[in-house]
């Protein structure tokens, strides 16, 4: 079964605003979105900014990296790690974060949010 979801693209920031292999937080429609630029892989990801463990608005300040080939971010508070592709918690806890589509165009970062 295939489900289709309508998303709306929002301008978040310029590509240079997000540090290479780091993250930044953008406020879009009142929602805090964490944007990550994995420069070594030339990949962009976007997730919730809130870490579900202690509900802190912090993931954009987390450390990016990989486990095997899976790109991830680790929360700066207690090092809970999340897959940037699926939002699944990789540290053995039952947490899930939302992930969002990212598009890069003319030096701008666009985030796709559910309409």
């Amino acid at each position: 079964m295939t489900t289709t979801e309508t998303i709306t693209w929002h301008v978040a920031c310029q590509t240079a605003d997000v540090p290479a292999d780091g993250g930044a937080c953008a406020l879009i429609n009142g929602r805090q979105i964490a944007i990550f630029h994995l420069a070594r892989r030339n990949e962009w990801y976007a997730t919730d900014n809130q870490c579900p463990h202690r509900q802190q608005m912090i993931l954009s300040r987390g450390m990016t990296g990989s486990v095997g080939d899976e790109p991830k971010v680790a929360c700066p508070f207690h090092k809970k790690a999340f897959s940037l592709k699926t939002g699944a918690c990789l540290s053995g806890d039952d947490y899930q974060i939302d992930t969002f589509a990212v598009r890069i165009e003319n030096g701008m970062v666009y985030i796709g949010l559910p309409a």
Partner: peptide, 19 residues
């Protein structure tokens, strides 16, 4: 970090090796 990872490591790094 980039030079260290390129020269001596592999993958994208993580919250253990980066700090």
């Amino acid at each position: 970090y980039g030079a260290v990872l390129d020269t001596l490591g592999k993958g994208d790094g993580c919250e253990v090796c980066k700090p």
